[in-house]
Design a protein around this nucleic acid. Structure first.
Lengths: 207, 207
DNA sequence: TAGCATACTTACCGTTCGGTAAGTGTCAAA
DNA sequence: TTTGACACTTACCGAACGGTAAGTATGCTA
């Protein structure tokens, strides 16, 4: 199988898994959309589970690469952290299907954990927590507090990303577009405020 | 059907829908867990869809009641808003299944929208946006900015709520417990930062 | 005691699911 | 010219799905 066709199969499969979930998606439907039979798909990926695992794997790698690459090494830590978070937001717009799959995986984890190999959110989260703790004034921020901040920002981004269709149906396309424009502004304010507090010592005294 | 048995059926069904999603859950399995046959369930709720709709309906009503009731009418608006958001967090711990179902519904909306009636997130969101805009100094905060703040807080809460099993498997029960303790502390800080920032920055040319 | 609603059960329907087995056509290398 | 890997297809399989139809035990009401 050439890389091109492989990418094509994975891309189509991804849309199905993202929209319907692992159990809701069927390999027969994916194959039909690709102009193939179900068995042709099973020839390339022995089991449905394997096909899905490859998609998850690619997403994990992209996430880790993202937090690794978006921030410039020369920038001050607070700028680096901000770039990482805003990079996540931009990526969530660029790869909306990935956000859906990640969230579905969080939800299905309990059931699927038996059969599927657990996946690789940890290094990604660790990187973000470390980036926050690298900010001057936050060196001694407890790991659990740093984690909460990171996860709150991440949750804001991902939850908004998966809400696209619902918000559009409630508020209409144009107002949803304004939300999407304003969202990173509020996100940036939140990050900067946090770092300012840390600098001025408020946060430190509070802990 | 008595209210008690009705509640019992809905409660068991809810766990299945929350853990496996609408398509992943099967009425036969739900019935078996209840000690009934599939047809007994279908006797009380004509279709699987109807059973699910009742669960969604109850969740919607609880959410709206929550934002209505948690904040004390006499308190200042900023306190009321803070109480609402923290009330949501507490509720997300008390009813973790509801968070799962809400998030699943956001994800499945695109597919299910054809068959299912759309549901009632809007009044709940409107109430929160109005509560934020009632804060002194934020009366003229644009609705779309207020919405972003509300949705970021909501996303933080719900995303954390559905991540329980995953976080526990990554970090272990004890560290997860610390996250759960620290989370509302950071959440409260986050709320106050949003309000402070909106107040001080709103007049600025930044917007 | 007859009638009737309630709360089920058993039996069955057609469809779809993931997955296996075996066959077919193509095409490049030996 | 044969071999054999590759990329499929057709033909199945058993299991599970949601849903319908028809029958049955129970218990209240007229």
């Amino acid at each position: 199988m050439s890389d091109a066709t492989r990418d094509r199969l994975l891309a189509t499969a991804k849309t199905h898994f993202a929209e319907r979930g692992f159990y809701g998606a069927s390999i027969a439907q994916i194959a039909t959309e690709l102009g193939l039979t179900k068995q042709a798909l099973l020839y390339h990926f022995k089991r449905k589970e394997d096909l899905y695992a490859e998609i998850l794997q690619a997403i994990s790698e992209r996430l880790i690469a993202l937090v690794h690459d978006t921030a410039s090494p020369g920038d001050p830590p607070e700028r680096r952290f901000e770039d990482m978070i805003l990079g996540l937001f931009i990526a969530s717009r660029e790869y909306p299907l990935d956000s859906r799959i990640i969230t579905r995986e969080l939800l299905d984890n309990q059931i699927r954990a038996k059969t599927a190999k657990s996946w690789y959110l940890e290094p990604f989260l660790e990187e973000l927590v470390a980036a926050l703790q690298a900010v001057p004034g936050l060196e001694k921020l407890p790991a659990s507090r740093a984690f909460c901040i990171v996860y709150q920002l991440l949750g804001s981004i991902e939850y908004f990303a998966i809400s696209g269709t619902t918000l559009e149906s409630i508020y209409g396309a144009s107002r949803h577009e304004r939300f999407r424009a304003d969202f990173p502004i509020e996100l940036r304010h939140q990050i900067r405020r946090y770092i300012d507090e840390a600098r001025s010592g408020f946060a430190g005294a509070d802990y």
